[in-house]
Amino acid sequence: MAFSRIRNSIYNCKQATLLVLKKKEQRLSIAERASLFIHLLFCDPCKRFVKQSDFIDHSLHHCDEMLHDQPVHSLSEETRKKIQQELDSAN
């Protein structure tokens, strides 16, 4: 039972990718760590998933900074004026 459960998770990419994400936030059990370790030894797509998931985390983590330094969108002149008027009348 335990063996088939471990074997199932070792060969299962769906399970492995979930464990990759869980590992970022919590401590995995010994069985989970072992099965993930072995899975990643043999599974190239999941190895790429680990790297790409980190890359996504990194870019989303930095998007606040990025959008401050180089905003992707601009408020229209009209909207700026409207907001300024609202602020002035709140004063």
């Binding site: 998007c63 905003p71 992707v72 969108h73 601009s74 700026r80 907001i83």
Partner: peptide, 18 residues
């Protein structure tokens, strides 16, 4: 507050649109 729209308008708008 007088500088808010100029300094942070596009930043907050880009964040809200994202």
């Amino acid at each position: 507050p007088a500088d808010w729209i100029g300094l942070y308008g596009d930043y907050l708008y880009s964040l809200a649109l994202l």
